[in-house]
Design a protein around this nucleic acid. Structure first.
Lengths: 330, 330
DNA sequence: CTACGATATGAAATCAATATCACATTGTTC
DNA sequence: GAACAATGTGATATTGATTTCATATCGTAG
């Protein structure tokens, strides 16, 4: 059933029906007629047709590298909460860490498919930048900082610094690092820098072979820990860029009967839900993932209301949660 | 830029442009002209306008109770993988376990907003049933079985039965149960029934106070375990309907220095990623969540191609993964 | 009493696409 | 060489909504 058929059924004009759904001038009499016909027929206007004329889709594009990750689903939960309350639906694209799909999603959204975009990026290439600059709808970047764009990010450097400092303050002298791809500025580069700063500040140096780059998985953390503990001289603390990596590392340590925290301390970032139930509970820098989603969504809403030329970068702070894996006397 | 402006730019007719994007009859000559103009102008057709006329949105509605759950995100990952490859986008609605939002999402999708729906339901009310019967587009239900609809579900009863049987076969005599809301047929009712069947088969009975109903969270598992272990006579094995519940229960047991598996065995369902790194690794019935998403998506695709009157119910099997929490001699 | 703004109305134009239709052109079969 | 199918073409109708526009009504200020 379309609007004209419905208008005839309700005994009003097409314009009246349109006004009913769009807060235009309309007499109480007609409002009543339409309301009754609505219940009788179950008519609902077509979103597509509305979008053609009014350019409003009530859809927000969300681009993310994967779904089955606790941090990402927490961010998405926050986004969904705020935008859902405002009557927006989420058009989700899972790029499976494939740059090409990130690019093609941005292309897709550049058309009149969505009213705004939230981009959970991992790595920025020149192609990303060039495409982002061409976007004619508001875009918010969450989890990364990119100059010239609206971003919500975490203090990754600070979180890594504080977590590492905590372990060094308990007397560790041979710090090791299992990090992420440095092309990922937030999780890769910034957390590495935070680790380095804490080490330097403590007057120590890091043996280059004590630095490993892992994938974002437990399995990879396990493998990298195996490498780190294959040397004669072993590390006495390991900073892991994510809790998944840390959990994998701890799995290896348990298998090898290397004691945590007695022989080696472990610190992570993310404060995953499972951290406290690990065989030794994991100390971790809590990042406000859901808040990032909420703030990103709010930023997008405000940007859609009146797009401003000024670009805001909101950096969320962290919280060090100390648990068993660093529980040593200084 | 719209199709007529672009057609003028390319030096062809509007029809030719439309045919270019829709595999109609078109000479190589014009195809070339359009391809060139496409690169020059960056024109892309409007999805909304296309949807008005052709009734195809290339959108699939996905309704889910929450995002930040490992099982759900694994299902969604599978859905996204299959449908993404076929050029569909996912319109995600996170209902936050709110029945009203489930209903309103179905209402929303009943219009011409999406081409098909995948519904990760938890509970079915009469309102659900009545609304589902009115849907004019294909709907696939994942994770639950509902007669008269296309479903992909798990053998929840069997998984619970086998997991419980495993513990009883190791000599447990006082089994306890921490389950989910029985209105949730799959996770609540079926898993309860499987537990009951195993207990009965072993010639045992369950003390009614040894049966608790938890929410789907670690915190709730913790609370219910506290109750279970507050009685003088304590259980010697606990079957938990989900791994989150099991993890919460184990957290309480560790705090109380109740040994797993010596004093009490624990079994879960779901085989969450963190199961093997718990302080005692958790035995669990592995369910094929991602496969469920994949199969659900495939079923939807086939249903969209040619809707059949016959309704299929695909039940996926489980796998018992034995780990430390049940590691006892019979 | 006129002028004016606020409210109310419906016909018709518009949005950006696809579907239909009538009509060429070419190739193949009898 | 006529008949017919397959391929190719563009003008125009159509899709289902919103927006514009011209116009009507009414209360009130001057």
């Amino acid at each position: 059933m379309n609007i004209s058929e419905f208008a005839r059924e309700a005994g009003v004009s097409v314009s009246a029906v349109s006004r009913y759904f769009n807060n235009g001038y309309l007499s109480e009499d007609k409002k009543q007629k339409i309301k009754e016909a609505l219940e009788r027929t179950g008519y609902t206007p077509s979103y597509s047709a509305r979008a053609v004329r009014s350019k409003v889709t009530k859809l927000i594009g969300v681009i993310l590298p994967k779904l089955s990750s606790e941090s990402i689903s927490r961010v998405t939960e926050g986004i969904s909460q705020v935008l859902g309350a405002e009557g927006f639906e989420l058009l989700l694209v899972n790029t499976a860490n494939d740059y090409n799909r990130e690019i093609s999603s941005l292309e897709l959204f550049r058309q009149n498919r969505v009213d705004g975009v939230i981009f959970l990026a991992s790595v920025f290439t020149d192609l990303h930048r060039s495409l982002l600059s061409k976007m004619r709808i508001p875009v918010i970047i969450v989890g990364q900082e990119l100059k010239g764009y609206n971003c919500v990010c975490h203090n990754d450097e600070g979180a890594a610094y504080s977590m590492t400092k905590l372990m060094l303050s308990k007397g560790a002298k041979r710090p090791a690092f299992i990090g992420a791809n440095p092309d990922d500025k937030a999780a890769g580069m910034d957390r590495r820098n935070g680790f380095d700063r804490a080490v330097k500040e403590a007057g120590l140096t890091v043996d280059p072979k004590f630095c490993e780059i892992a994938k974002f998985s437990m399995e990879s953390g396990y493998e990298k820990a195996k490498r780190l503990f294959s040397y004669k001289q072993k590390p006495d603390c390991v900073f892991c860029a994510t809790d998944n990596i840390a959990a994998g590392a701890m799995l290896y340590l348990r298998e090898q009967s290397i004691r945590v925290p007695e022989d080696v301390m472990i610190g992570g970032v993310g404060d995953s839900r499972f951290d406290k139930v690990l065989y030794v509970s994991l100390s971790s820098a809590h990042l406000h993932y859901k808040t990032a989603g909420i703030e990103g969504a709010k930023m997008l809403l405000s940007e859609m209301k009146n797009s401003s030329e000024v670009h805001r970068i909101l950096q969320l702070e962290y919280e060090i949660i100390e648990r068993g894996s660093t529980d040593r006397q200084p």
